[in-house]
Design a protein around this nucleic acid. Structure first.
Length: 245
DNA sequence: GCATGGTGGTCGGTTACATCA
DNA sequence: CGTGATGTAACCGACCACCAT
């Protein structure tokens, strides 16, 4: 806040109708002299209050932001102001305080919003990573099932769901499928939780792939691995499902 | 009890001025 | 010295509460 140079209180000002009376100290004789001038520009002759007046008003405002009529008269008398001036000062002070409070509230809300937006974004990425994990696991458990169906079902009608994505599976996934076949898993439900439960309950020692998926390359905080690596491209408009297309 | 008008207060918005960078 | 930004005293109009009639 800027500090103002308050002009010396050498004159007093009283509003009388459409005229302003000023008591001005004569520069030569030092005697007070009353001048009456027509109010300029819509009664807007004004003068800043003295430091002392402001201090008194401020301290009074601290204790009560509204003045009772009787107290207003007393304050006006004590400070050498018109009661209306005191009323207007309190009015303006309340308005300024409210405005500052609004500014503070806005800043706080903005900050809270930014925090929430940030948390939302990280949760969204985490969700995408989890969905990716889930999809990959589903594909892994689906393929061995289809292979089993194809080999063991004889002349039964077999509906294969094999698509391009499965055809291009890596060697790692093939070895994983073999292991799965060796364990002789039964028919798997498409329900995600059932798949996960069935698999992890049966696997005493997870395959290297599952270990990687579950624990990440460092054996901990796998989702940070996923989000920091693969999915950070989402900022370029890259979505996790684009990985498969 | 209810309608009406006067009075005084508050509030949001605005104006005019003072001061500073 | 001129100028734009900012703070502030004062004003205006709308609204409300209270009170007397």
């Amino acid at each position: 806040m800027r500090s103002y140079h308050i002009q010396p209180q050498k004159e007093d000002q009283i509003l009388v109708g459409e005229y302003t009376q000023r008591i001005i100290e004569d520069p030569f004789s030092g005697m007070p002299e009353i001048t009456t001038t027509k109010k300029k520009n819509n009664n807007k002759n004004k003068r800043r209050f003295s430091d002392e007046q402001i201090r008194s008003l401020e301290s009074m405002f601290e204790s009560e932001s509204r003045l009772e009529p009787r107290k207003k008269l007393q304050v006006a008398k004590d400070l050498g102001l018109q009661p209306r001036q005191v009323a207007i000062w309190f009015q303006n002070k309340r308005a300024r305080r409210k405005s500052k409070q609004l500014e503070r509230d806005y800043t706080m809300l903005q900050s809270n919003y930014d925090n929430l937006a940030s948390k939302y974004e990280s949760l969204k990425k985490e969700k995408q990573a989890l969905a990716f994990q889930l999809q990959k696991l589903k594909d892994l458990v689906k393929k061995p099932k289809e292979e089993d169906d194809g080999q063991c079902c004889g002349d039964q009608q077999v509906i294969t769901m094999e698509g391009e994505a499965i055809k291009s599976d890596s060697e790692e996934q093939h070895s994983f499928s073999m292991e799965r076949s060796e364990h002789g898993l039964g028919v798997l439900s498409d329900d995600d939780s059932t798949i996960m439960t069935s698999y992890f309950e049966l696997e005493q020692e997870p395959t290297s792939f599952i270990t990687m998926v579950e624990l990440g390359p460092s054996g901990e905080d796998w989702h940070s691995f996923e989000t920091d690596g693969l999915f950070d491209q989402s900022s370029n408009g890259y979505q996790w499902w684009d990985f498969w297309s």
